[in-house]
Design a protein around this nucleic acid. Sequence first.
DNA 1: CTGAAAGCGCTTACAG
DNA 2: CTGAAAGCGCTTACAG
Lengths: 339, 339
Amino acid sequence: MKIDPRALGKPTISDIARLAGVSTATVSRALAHPDRVQIATRERVMAAVQQTGYTVNSVARNLRTQRTNAILVLTPNLANPFFSLILSAITKVAATNGFGVLIADTAPQGDRDAEVMRLSGDGRADGIILLDSAQDPLSITRTGLPMVLACEWIEGSTLPKVAIDNIAGAKLAVEHLASLGHTKIAHVTGPAGNVLSKTRAQGWAEALRTLGLTPGHCYTGDFTMKSGVEAAKTWIDTPQAQRPTAVFCASDECALGFIGEIHRASLRVPTDVSVVGFDDIEIAGHFIPALTTIHQPRQRLGARAAEMVIRMIRGQSPDPGDATPLPVNLVKRDSTAQL
Amino acid sequence: MKIDPRALGKPTISDIARLAGVSTATVSRALAHPDRVQIATRERVMAAVQQTGYTVNSVARNLRTQRTNAILVLTPNLANPFFSLILSAITKVAATNGFGVLIADTAPQGDRDAEVMRLSGDGRADGIILLDSAQDPLSITRTGLPMVLACEWIEGSTLPKVAIDNIAGAKLAVEHLASLGHTKIAHVTGPAGNVLSKTRAQGWAEALRTLGLTPGHCYTGDFTMKSGVEAAKTWIDTPQAQRPTAVFCASDECALGFIGEIHRASLRVPTDVSVVGFDDIEIAGHFIPALTTIHQPRQRLGARAAEMVIRMIRGQSPDPGDATPLPVNLVKRDSTAQL
DNA sequence: CTGAAAGCGCTTACAG
DNA sequence: CTGAAAGCGCTTACAG
């Protein structure tokens, strides 16, 4: 009794070869280089493929060719919508270059380093984009896998990175506030130790100094709405005469939390305090009041990161333009007003 | 002249075998079943692993074992923050069960069907979670790969799905509005043809009927903020006497767009119109006014989907509880008020 | 243009 | 407890 091969699971290249009456080599060729087989042969192969619904087993192919045509993206926290657009841009650029994208969330196990090491070494991908940056992966991996840092970066690391100009962004925010007559400009920071927090705080302090303003008050935050709420509470508890009249928040989420709390206390933005965010997430323009913020080109950021790894994977020389930070700009909306 | 093997790229199992003076079989065993090799042998192997930074090549292993320990998640649009939490929950459950997660965005090529077919057939994953549902994948694939539908589903499909109770959610919204004295309750729909749109609209209409209210006005939307803005414009252009006094939007984004536009026209929510959303996205509670909405348990949804595929992959029988839709509940906040 | 054969890096019965 | 050997499903020089 013959067994129907289709009952045995997915058809393999041998099944196709048998059906088409050719060798597996020819099947492989017909699929990958149609022009290198006789037209009649090709058609017999294609017919068998159609009939069985055959698809190449990419695991086998990857092992044989030592390429995966896949890029691995390591993200610190998938639950954070901030990454959505970046991931989507990476996926898009990858797709047009024939690469698939694997996304891994390093949060669940909490052990990013182990994860980076495991995933980078295991041959699943040809290159890696790191959206996280707790530690220099070079210190923990020995894979020669092309790797680029995006969003955040590690000081002193030699890894290629794609970044935005955080200092310039913070300065833009402060200058905007100053131009509206504000002189007491506070800052709600990002999480301690983070490069983004550091550079944004630095830009804020520098701008203040350049403008000849006294150093402003600093609220400790961590990019979350909750930390914005906390900062607002502190602000509300401050005697009115001492309150900063403007606040530059290290992230939009934080700014939104800040504004929400201000309103909950029956005070008003921008009447009682002007607020500027950083990121320009989608909701920013729809919030009430619409949030004045520093726009981050997240699509371009993701796209550039993808282009960079792909170039590295292909052994092409880096584009000199990639070294310069992506520009940011201020989007003036309704959360800031003349003092 | 001998060549340093480490210079040749990633070390393989043969390198370790040579270094430890054992066979590759023993290396493999020492790594996968430490208890099946002599302790001294194991230590020699481990030393070689340490020294070289060796990691198993998962592509080779997957080919050999015919398992990938990976789940593929197909999402319609990574740029949509709505999926973030779901993805993160999937990743978490997968991780605790020893599975990795591959996320693919079907948007870039626009050809979801081709993508589903290619990815499901190519041996990269042991199972699939589909967050999209344009068409029944059974009609296009012949892989016997375990597959579960999440978020949306396809009418008439026999695929296992995890869903929430959309009809009940919509009813909750309408009943809440009615309890506040509203009788003219409109609806902004989701995109036409979508199951979620259909069931939510159905729940709205049914609740109205049950409560003995006249059928309300229906604005055509598509879940986006923009469509909420459009609906609001139409509402604003309606003579005041004919305006619905309450609006149930098919999504939070849409509701937020609606409210934003109302305020831009110098009208107020909930003073001039009460608004209820659907989803309970993170921003909902921080919006001004905080949005009354139907809470969707996105974490549980993702977690259940992951549990389901994993069970299928393991050949375990389905949990009967998985057939019942996940419950939703109304979160009363500030966008709805007594008429 | 086509086929036989080797080999990608592993794991696992099967002997010993 | 350990090793030799087969094989997972492909692709690609190498002959013919």
